[in-house]
């Protein structure tokens, strides 16, 4: 039974890996990247430089993703970005004083497009950016109400980066393959960690009791954290984290409380588990999460615009692993639990 599960799991992982690899690496994709620096001078609220324009060749009809990032030093004007087709149609636009943004998929046809950066230094330019581009938006008024403190005189250094890449629906398939592979790998890990036949973990009656209590404490921990979040929200206190990580944080706290309570009371490891194997898997997962988490912070994805983002989740998972190991260590020191 266990052998069959292992063989089938490994076969499925192999098929998914091959399919995912082909989907991700063997499908061609169009990518272009560009970056430039610009000195901007503003005199009496009039910008002295022309707009910056770049021509890009789209090789074939399709869906494309645009990513742009810019910042100015000091702040004081707005950059408007447009992608304009040969016929003059604006297929994408965005405005910001500084940003790091990703577009929704843009439908583009084979041909030449222009990526234009306009330097907006007063309200009139702001209005004309939208009017001249004939930008219309059903969701909000165009041009949007602007309440921005333009600097009327000054010199700015601005750095711009942008890239355009073809959106490949099949790359989404590769991501799904990766997620499925992750799930099946967990099954394989669980099967390998179990002694004897079968993959179901066996706990004795005391362990079941401990695990039940662990669930109870985890549930109340989650409840309390959610109430705290709700209270802070009601008091209009800003929590520096996005909604995604905030919602996951209570689940992670629950997992942390559950795991540490069970470890402390000898209910975490099943009777039929190979402790060494489980420890190896936990260490691997801990290190992987730690590396991914630190990487997300170093690259600025985990902490962005003054708040924690969903990318910080790996670091929190690594912290849970650390808490589990810490509890094991503490238990070994404080309560040796050896035979009397």
């Amino acid at each position: 039974m266990k052998k069959k599960i292992l063989i089938v799991s490994v076969a499925v992982v192999a098929i998914l890996a091959i399919f995912g690899f082909m989907a991700y690496f063997l499908t061609d994709k169009y990518v272009m990247e560009m970056e430039f620096e610009k000195e901007i001078s503003v005199v009496d609220s009039i910008v002295q430089q022309e707009e910056e324009m770049y021509q890009i060749e789209i090789p074939k009809d399709g869906s494309y993703l645009f990513h742009a990032k810019w910042e100015t030093n000091p702040e004081g004007f707005i950059t408007g970005c447009q992608i304009i087709s040969e016929s003059g149609e604006v297929v994408f636009w965005s405005t910001a004083d500084w940003c790091d943004m990703y577009s929704n998929p843009i439908e583009m046809k084979k041909g030449t497009y222009t990526v234009a950066f306009f330097f907006i230094t007063n309200d009139e330019q702001w209005d004309s950016f939208f009017k001249e581009a004939k930008v219309e938006d059903e969701l909000w008024n165009v041009p949007p109400d602007l309440n921005y403190d333009f600097v009327s005189d000054g010199t700015f250094t601005a750095h711009y980066e942008f890239d355009l890449k073809e959106e490949k629906p099949i790359r989404g398939v590769a991501v799904v393959c990766g997620m499925l592979m992750g799930c099946i790998l967990i099954v394989i890990m669980v099967a390998l960690a179990q002694k004897g036949e079968g993959i179901k973990a066996k706990y004795d009656e005391r362990q079941e009791l401990v695990r039940g209590r662990g669930f109870k404490y985890a549930f109340f921990s989650m409840l309390i954290l959610n109430i705290v979040f709700f209270g802070l929200g009601a008091a209009e206190v800003t929590i520096p984290m996005d909604a995604g990580i905030a919602s996951m944080l209570s689940a992670l706290l629950g997992a942390c409380v559950y795991a540490s309570y069970c470890v402390w009371n000898d209910g975490y490891f099943a009777l039929n588990q190979r402790l060494g194997m489980v420890m190896i898997f936990l260490i691997i997962m801990g290190i992987l999460n730690l590396v991914l988490g630190i990487n997300a912070f170093v690259e600025g994805r985990a902490w962005y615009n003054g708040e924690l983002t969903f990318h910080s989740i790996n670091l929190f998972c690594a912290i849970i692993m650390l808490v589990i190991f810490g509890t094991m260590l503490l238990k070994k020191i404080v309560r040796d639990g050896k035979e009397e």
Binding site: D204, E205, R206, D266, L271, E339, E340
Partner: peptide
């Protein structure tokens, strides 16, 4: 008896 050592330890204690 098919339980963990810690369970026997807990019963004795």
């Amino acid at each position: 008896v098919g339980v963990s050592r810690q369970t026997i330890n807990a019963i004795e204690k």
